[in-house]
Structure formats: structure tokens, C-alpha cells
């Protein structure tokens, strides 16, 4: 039998480590390299100086030339390793360069100027994690504004999504009323018809409502997610009706039943929807791109795309800003990864 098939068709539940286990780990490690490698490369690159960024072939780590501060010179001097004709080498600091000749001094004897052909010197370098890309990028990028906009939109849109969807799900799961089936089926039918196919009319609606360059324009329209209603309704169906009847006898209004009985019991489903909503809203691009045209309303994603258009040569800044933009969601994922991965596995939506 084909060993590859044999390997793939193996299942859990054996004890010894054998060849197919070895292949599994090799595949998974390769997977880690391919999945994480680009991120690591992004992070390493974001610390590089513009000179290092432009260097080809690139080096893995961000290097920087060592410098030394000497009395009598305003700026730090660059350090080089100089090889002399007799084969000896010395570490010298460069004072200035004229054509192919460099004027250098020994840091221990700063009075004597040594003239060196530039072909005979090599920069002394060290690995350096410098934040200058980040500082410069934040200055030209309005990172603070975009971060605030994204955070604000993500949080308010998620809260609104949870409220609006759970109310609708409650009505659809716990009551029988004329039109119920129609409402539910219409929502399900539009479950998969994406924003992208109604770009023009949706832009018209936003314009008519007057929500261009208004946060309401990217918070409200996305709040009524059919997926959210579906997910919550399925969960609420499993909550027994007897609890509601008991509360009604005690004189509770339907709103109290929703807010104080159903919502607390639906916490797991609400948590899953909250996680999805945060992921959706944080990464939204097309919708904010259409609604927002003024930079002060840009979210991180739109800002990043605009930044790329504007500074398409300054990769060092773009990379630093990209790292900053993935930082918050990465931290959230690191903390909640178990819930996120099992949540997706059990509900099968994104």
C-alpha cells in the first residue's frame, strides 16, 4: 500500500513514535515555518534601517553599524574594521570620506589621522532593535487616531451587534407569531450574499441617510448580521421555556425575561458572536473604504492602505505600521485562542 496514504489515514490512539509520526511532526513544523515565518520576517524587517531595507539579498536580522562618540566631534563616528597591507587589522572610526579615501582615527589615539582606501575597510555591525521606524511612522501616519477609530468602531459595533441580534434571536426562538418564518428565511437567504455585490446601492443608501464620514455609517449597517441571529437563535432554542413561564407568573415583563433570564443563559453563544464581531470589525476594509473619505475617520485598515499608497517606497515605515496594526488582535488571540479555535470549530462560521 502507498506509504503516503498509509500515513495520512492513520488515526489517534497508538503509543509508539514511528515513521508516520515523524512525518506528521515534520509536516507540522514546516507548517509553523510557512504560517509564522512571514510574520517573523515582517517583525524583523520592521526594525531595519532604510539602508538595510534596501539591501539585497536581505539579511535575516536587523543590523546597524556600530558608532562611537569621541571628544571633539559633534556626531557619533562610524566604526570600521580596517585591513592593512601587512595583513593586520584595527578598529578605526571614520571622520570623513573623500572619494575613495577615508580619513580615520583610532579611538584610543584620537589625534592621529589615518588615511585608508575605502576598499580596505568593513563596517563593524551589531544586531539592533531600533524603534526609529515606529516613531517616524506614528508621526506621519496618525496611528493614534486610526487606532482610536478602529477600537471605538469595533467595541460599539460589537455591543450593538450583540444587543440587536440577541433581541431578534429571542423573538424568533421563543415566540410564535405570524411572519416569523418569512423573517427568518429572508435573513438566512441573505446570509451569503456579500456586501461586494451591492456596493453601488449601499453607497447610495449611506449617502441618502447622510452617514458619509460618520462613524454611524460603519457601525450601524453591519450590526444586523444574519449569521449572528442564526447562531444565537439556535442556542436560545435549547433554553427551556419553563423558566420564562415561571417568571411571567411572578409578573416579570417580556423585556425582563429577555434581559435577566435569557441573556445570562446565552452567555456562551454571545461570547462566540462577540469574538467573531471583534474579528470582523477590526479587519473590515471595503465598507469603511467606501463610507469614509476623510483621513480623520479612517480605521487602521483603511489608513494602512492609504499609507501604502502614499509612502510606497518607504517600506521601513509601512512594515512598522503593519506590525502595530496586528499587535492588538494578536494579543487578544494569544489570550483567548482556546475559545476562538473551539468556537469556530463548533459553529463553523467566520
Amino acid at each position: 500500500m502507498n506509504p503516503v496514504l498509509e500515513f495520512l489515514t492513520r488515526r489517534r490512539g497508538r503509543k509508539k513514535l514511528n515513521f508516520s509520526d515523524f512525518l506528521s511532526y515534520a509536516y507540522l513544523l514546516l507548517g509553523v515555518l510557512i504560517m509564522f515565518g512571514p510574520i517573523v520576517w515582517l517583525i524583523l524587517s520592521s526594525f531595519k534601517t532604510p539602508i538595510e531595507i534596501a539591501r539585497f539579498p536581505p539579511r535575516i536580522f536587523p543590523y546597524r553599524q556600530q558608532t562611537i562618540e569621541l571628544e571633539g566631534f559633534d556626531d557619533p563616528l562610524q566604526l570600521f574594521k580596517v585591513t592593512f597591507d601587512d595583513g593586520s587589522t584595527r578598529e578605526l572610526a571614520q571622520v570623513r570620506r573623500v572619494g575613495i579615501e577615508a580619513q580615520m582615527i583610532d579611538p584610543d589615539m584620537p589625534d592621529e589621522i589615518i588615511r585608508v582606501n575605502i576598499a580596505e575597510r568593513e563596517p563593524i555591525e551589531e544586531i539592533h532593535i531600533g524603534l526609529s521606524n515606529y516613531i517616524e511612522g506614528v508621526r506621519g501616519f496618525n496611528f493614534g487616531t486610526y487606532l482610536w477609530n478602529s477600537t471605538f468602531v469595533t467595541i460599539t459595533a460589537t455591543l450593538l451587534t450583540l444587543l440587536v441580534n440577541s433581541m431578534a434571536a429571542f423573538a424568533l426562538a421563543k415566540y410564535k407569531f405570524p411572519g416569523q418564518q418569512t423573517i427568518f428565511m429572508t435573513m438566512i437567504a441573505t446570509l451569503m450574499v456579500p456586501l461586494s455585490v451591492v456596493l453601488v446601492p449601499i453607497f447610495l443608501v449611506i449617502t441618502r441617510v447622510g452617514w458619509n464620514n460618520n462613524f454611524l455609517g460603519i457601525i450601524v449597517p453591519v450590526a444586523a448580521t444574519p449569521t449572528g441571529v442564526f447562531l444565537l437563535r439556535q442556542y436560545m432554542l435549547t433554553i427551556p421555556n419553563e423558566l420564562m413561564d415561571a417568571a411571567r407568573i411572578d409578573g416579570a415583563s417580556e423585556w425582563r425575561i429577555y434581559a435577566q433570564i435569557i441573556l445570562p443563559l446565552a452567555k456562551p453563544a454571545l461570547a462566540v458572536l462577540a469574538i467573531f464581531s471583534v474579528m470582523w470589525r477590526w479587519n473590515d476594509f471595503l465598507w469603511p473604504l467606501i463610507v469614509m473619505s476623510r483621513p480623520e475617520y479612517f480605521t487602521l485598515q483603511v489608513g494602512l492602505a492609504a499609507f501604502q499608497g502614499e509612502f510606497s517606497v518607504d517600506w521601513n515605515l509601512i512594515l512598522a505600521m503593519t506590525v502595530l496594526s496586528i499587535l492588538p488582535i494578536t494579543v487578544v488571540f494569544a489570550i483567548l485562542q482556546r475559545y476562538i479555535t473551539t468556537g469556530i470549530a463548533t459553529t463553523g462560521l467566520k
Binding site: Y175, V198, P201, A223
Partner: peptide, 23 residues
């Protein structure tokens, strides 16, 4: 129940269903 589905239906109708018909 109509009261509870109303907010969702308003948003859904205005920003999903209506644009689909406008298309």
C-alpha cells in the same frame, strides 16, 4: 416579538434588503 425583531429588521431592511432591490 415584533418589538424585539424591529431594530434588527430596520437595519437589515435598510442596509441589506433595500440595497439588493436597488441594485
Amino acid at each position: 416579538p415584533y418589538l424585539f425583531v424591529l431594530p434588527n429588521l430596520l437595519i437589515f431592511g435598510l442596509f441589506i434588503l433595500y440595497p439588493m432591490l436597488l441594485n
